[in-house]
């Protein structure tokens, strides 16, 4: 499965479109990490626990999108966009969406 965020797969041509595919996940931070983050907040800087959490969430979202594309019979997803939004305090949603296509 080829995933790109440009309109085509560079070097290959699209032969069929399957429409929009998407994958999303909502993750909550667990308590221990939240407490650690509030300590870290005194000095500022990167919150490694949250970064790791969001990386895992994004991989999950992209995986779900891929699975949906596979069901449609596609072998590539183009024009992929990733967005994050906070649904509730302490929970983040990751959404990945793109166009499923078949390339030769």
């Amino acid at each position: 499965m080829v995933i790109t965020n440009v309109e085509t797969v560079p070097g290959q041509s699209i032969i069929e479109h399957y429409g929009l595919v998407q994958g999303s996940t909502i993750r909550a931070k667990h308590m221990g990490k939240d407490i650690m983050a509030s300590f870290k907040n005194i000095i500022g800087g990167e919150l490694k626990g949250y970064t790791q959490l969001l990386i895992e969430a994004r991989e999950e979202a992209v995986d779900r999108m891929e699975k949906q594309a596979e069901e449609l019979g596609a072998n590539a997803v183009v024009n992929v966009r990733i967005s994050t939004s906070s649904v509730a305090q302490g929970a983040a949603e990751i959404l990945a969406y793109g166009t499923a296509v078949r390339v030769d």
């Binding site: 070097g11 983050a37 907040n41 005194i42 500022g44 800087g45 990167e46 969001l54 990386i55 990733i82």
Partner: peptide, 14 residues
């Protein structure tokens, strides 16, 4: 070609 992603969470200090 493949997708490349990088992310970071930053916070402000007191």
């Amino acid at each position: 070609s493949e997708i490349a992603v990088g992310s970071v969470v930053v916070s402000v200090d007191h």
